[in-house]
């Protein structure tokens, strides 16, 4: 087992290299010259040359890449062209906010998806079972067609504007101007306020996260739900579950058989969804002024803020790689077929 983990972790290194190279290459391929953007319209010819030299942009491609890797490894992602702030600091504030949102969203999707999907798959083909399955199909179609920002706006309209029971869609901690935001170790306002023991603020932060999380759940739960229903049905009808039932294996154990076997496709799909949400939740972030990663990316792309774009790409890639690593590790523990055989077969 240790061997598998070591091998899998060792594989991370070339993966990161490829990713960093692609991030670097893509920036080079983007139209627009960073020097011109930095200097703005009132630039002089000498200024351009000087700035090009200062940024090392006159050096050969691979030298530039080498310097980029060197800086990145030291945690220096450069400064934002727009805000002049170090990119790493900006990321430190933005990434946790988004991770928090999409993690809660994913958990909601998984809980709803697996719960409802499992029940639907094993429901009788008559009565409430038919009703449930039909509603799920209808909901699946509906959720696939609804834009997430629209769902978010409807929620805002109902729960904030009309009923007034949830806070306004203005960030993680509504009612505070950004500079007064609590400065905590996690950069996630709900957790930071909790750590500080300020339960009033924590309550507000909690209530503020309900609507964005519910939005994500409404729109993306069908992804998990569908795969759960399909694989559960498949496993339930499999020869081995039928075989186990035919020799009187009790329900509890049958449920375990189904869960363990259906788990892998569900984990894989959920992982892919998780990786997708990092950038995919951008409109939801915008609707709720979440100040997250997605919003920041869009701003950076609009401003051709090269260092920021590069940093974002790296973060997104690393996140994806780590999620896939987790999927692989779960597979390894659940499915003995990928483990090296320890018992002879003959």
């Amino acid at each position: 087992m240790r061997k598998f983990l070591l091998r899998r972790f060792a594989f991370l290194i070339p993966q990161l290299f490829v990713v960093s190279f692609l991030a670097f290459l893509l920036i080079k391929l983007l139209p627009g010259d960073p020097v011109l953007i930095i200097l703005g319209p009132l630039r002089t010819q000498e200024g351009v040359i000087r700035e090009t030299k200062r940024l090392g942009l006159d050096k050969p491609f691979f030298v530039q890449y080498g310097r980029y890797v060197e800086r990145t490894v030291q945690g220096d992602f450069g400064n934002s062209i727009v805000t002049k702030q170090p990119v790493i600091e900006e990321l430190g504030r933005r990434v946790p906010a988004t991770l928090w949102l999409i993690t809660l969203g994913l958990v909601a999707c998984v809980v709803i998806g697996i719960g409802v999907g499992y029940v639907a798959a094993l429901a009788p083909p008559t009565g409430w079972g038919t009703w449930l399955n039909k509603s799920i199909i209808g909901y699946g179609f509906l959720a696939g067609a609804l834009p997430d920002f629209w769902v978010g706006l409807i929620l805002v309209f109902i729960f904030f504007a009309t009923l007034g029971i949830l806070p306004a869609p203005i960030g993680q901690l509504p009612g505070y101007i950004p500079s007064l935001l609590p400065d905590g170790p996690t950069n996630i306002d709900l957790l930071d306020t909790l750590i500080k023991g300020d339960f009033g603020q924590a309550g507000t932060a909690f209530r503020a996260s309900i609507m964005p999380v519910v939005t994500l759940a409404i729109v993306y739960a069908p992804v998990v739900l569908k795969i759960t229903a399909v694989t559960t049905t498949e496993v339930f009808n499999s020869q081995y579950v039928t075989g186990a039932r035919a020799v009187g294996v009790r329900r509890r154990t049958i449920t375990r058989y189904i869960m363990r076997n259906a788990l892998l496709p569900i984990v894989t799909t959920s992982g892919v969804l998780y990786a997708f949400l990092l950038g995919g939740a951008v409109l939801v972030e915008t609707v709720f002024s979440w100040g997250g990663f997605g919003q920041y990316t869009v701003d950076a792309v609009n401003a051709l803020d090269f260092n920021v774009i590069q940093g974002m790409m790296l973060v997104a890639a690393v996140f994806t790689i780590v999620v896939y690593l987790l999927i692989d590790i779960i597979h390894y523990f659940v499915d003995p077929r990928i483990r090296v055989s320890t018992v002879g077969s003959s």
Binding site: Q239, Y240, G243, T253, N261, P336
Partner: peptide, 28 residues
């Protein structure tokens, strides 16, 4: 009880042969 055909395809692929027999015993 029923003996089903299919060899390994009729056994739960993620659990050992022994534990599947134990499952039958424990059920009763």
């Amino acid at each position: 009880a029923m003996i089903v055909p299919g060899g390994k395809f009729s056994l739960n692929p993620v659990e050992t042969a022994g534990s599947q027999i134990v499952d039958v015993l424990r059920s009763h």
